[in-house]
Write a protein that binds this DNA or RNA. Sequence first.
DNA 1: TTGAAAGCGGTACCAA
DNA 2: TTGGTACCGCTTTCAA
Lengths: 329, 329
Amino acid sequence: MSIDDVAAEAGVHRSTVSRAFSRPEAVNPTTRQRILEVAESLGYQMSPLAQALRRKTSNLVPLIVPDITNPFYGELAKTMATAAAGKGYQLVLCVTDGEVAQTSGYLTALQGMYAPFGIVAPSTSVDLDELQSVALGSRVVVVDRVEKANVPTVTVDSAEGIALAVDHLRGLGHRRIAYVSGISGTYTSRDRLAAYEGLAEKLEMPATILDAGTGPEVGERAAELFVDMPREQRPTAVIAANDMVAFALISSLGARGVSIPGEVSVMGFDGLELGSRSNPRLTTVRQPIADMGAIAIDLAEQLLNDGEAQHVVLTPDLLIRASTAEVPR
Amino acid sequence: MSIDDVAAEAGVHRSTVSRAFSRPEAVNPTTRQRILEVAESLGYQMSPLAQALRRKTSNLVPLIVPDITNPFYGELAKTMATAAAGKGYQLVLCVTDGEVAQTSGYLTALQGMYAPFGIVAPSTSVDLDELQSVALGSRVVVVDRVEKANVPTVTVDSAEGIALAVDHLRGLGHRRIAYVSGISGTYTSRDRLAAYEGLAEKLEMPATILDAGTGPEVGERAAELFVDMPREQRPTAVIAANDMVAFALISSLGARGVSIPGEVSVMGFDGLELGSRSNPRLTTVRQPIADMGAIAIDLAEQLLNDGEAQHVVLTPDLLIRASTAEVPR
DNA sequence: TTGAAAGCGGTACCAA
DNA sequence: TTGGTACCGCTTTCAA
C-alpha cells in the first residue's frame, strides 16, 4: 500500500497525492477530496520512514533519562509521552543509568534517525557544553536542570520551593530544620541545597545538612546521623532533597523506631503521586510535572523555529499531607 | 556523510561498501579492511532509516505499557531497554493509559515504521485475539499476562508465588490470611486471586477477599473493610495483589492507626525496589523482573525465526523484609 | 569478488 | 493546479 497505489486508483500522479496530504491548499479541492477518499478506502498510511528519509526530519524524539525506574522520571516520561503524542511525535526511550557517555551516544544514534530534537533529563554529571558538541546536541531541551544560556530549559524554582517548605514547617513551630541531601548530589539536589542554605542564612536559622548516602542504602546514613545526635540537638523537621529520598529516610527512621511525624516531621520535594500511598502520606513541595512535558515540547519547537533558547521556570506549590506536624514539646 | 562518500574515498562501488558491513564474508578481506578504515576515519554511520526503508524492517520496537508512572512498569521498561539496546533495538515508548484502542493504534503506527515486533504489557481488558488482528499484532510478545496459545508470553507462576506467601505467613503462625485484590482487576491480579482461592480451599483455610478499590483512593476501601470488622474476626495477615496495592493499603491502614506488622502483617507481590524504601519495608513475593526483558526479546526473535510462540513461566521467590511478623497473641 | 541498476516510499522543484 | 523527474541513503539481484 504505497503512494503510487493511491495515485493510480485516484487517477492522478503520486506528487499530487503527496501534496494532498502535506500541502492541501496547493491542490484542487475536488481532486483532494477524491484522493482522500481513495486513500481512506484503501486504508493507506503514509510511511513515516520514507517521509523522514526524504525530508531529513522524522517524528522520533529521544527522551533521555538516567533511570526510568525512579517514579519521578516515570511521571516525567508520562507527561512527555502525552505531549509528544499530541504533536505527532514518538518518544524513543533512552535510559542512561547516569552514564554521561550514553547520553551523547543516544543523541548521535537518534540523529541518524533524523530526530528533530531531543529531550534530556540529565543525570548529575552531564556537561551541557559537552552535550551540545554532539550533532543533535544543539537541538535539545533540558528538563529539571538549571538554566544554561543557549539550551532551552524547563525547571522549577528551587528557592521558592524551599521557602514554601520552610514556611510550612516554621508555621508548625519548627526551628531546627535540617536538609537531607540527595543521591550522589543530583543537580536539582544541589540547587535545592543551595536554596536551603541561602534561606537559613537569611532567616538566621541554623543550617544542618544530613547526607542520605548513595545506592540502595539511601536514607540509612541520614537516619544514623539523626539518631546519633543528642535528642535536644536533633532537628525537629527535615526537608529531603526529593520525594524518593524522603521515602527512604522515613523508611530508615521507621526501622530505628523514630516516629513520623511524632518525633520528626519529614518533607519531600517533587510531589509524586506515590506520596499519597506512603506511610505516613508525604507532605511535599509539588513540581508541576504535568506541565513540564507540554512546555518542553513547545520549547523545542520554538528552538527549531526561531533558534531561540528560552528558559521556563515553573512555580511549585505545597502539598500538605501527613508527614509533618506541630513541633513536639 | 553517506555510503557514496565512503565508496568514493575507498575507490569502490557503494554496493561493495554495503556488503562490507552487512555481509562481510562476501567481500575481499583487504578491500573490506580498507572500507572499514575509510568509514571509520570519515566517521561514517549507516542510516538506519534508509536501511529500514529498503529492508522493510527496522530496529524500532514498541514497548506498550498501560502506565509508565507505575514503578512496576518502570522496572520492566528498564530491563527491556537494557535487553533491547544489547541487540541493537531502540524502544519506542507507548503509554496506553489502559485504553485498549491505543494499543492497536500504536501497533499499526509502529508497523508503518517497519517495527520487527512489539512488546506488550497489556492492561486489564486488552483482548489478545483482537490484538493479533492488527498487522503487527501477530509479531508481539506479551509480558505479565497468562498464556495464550499463539502469542509468546513471559509470566511468573502466580500459584507458586501465592504459595510462597502463604507458607511464609503460616510459618509465622497466621491462620486468617486475607487477599486484597488489585486496582480494577488487573489481569495478574485476577490470576493471583484465583491462586489464593485455590490454595485456601486446598488448605481448608477461610478465604477472605478485600477489595482495595480503584483510582487514587486505592487501599482505602480495604482498610475500611478491615477496621470495620470485629477484632477477633480480622485477618492477622493480608496478601496484596501487588506491591503498589500493598503500599496503598499500608498507607491507609497507617492513617487509621493500625500498626504494621504489629496488628496485621502485609505482604506484597512483585518485589519492587521501592519496597526497600517503604515504611515498614515490604515483605513480598519477587518476580524476576530483571530476566523478563531479555527473555521477552529472545521470544520475539524466536517467533520471527521459527514462527514458534513459546511460553516462559518464571519462578518467583520470597523477599522477607519488615512488613510481616509473628501473629500477635 | 565487484559493479551496475532498479527500487523502497516518499518530497520538492521545475515545467506545462 | 498538475505531472515529471530527480533524489533521500541503502539493499539486492544480475552480470561481468
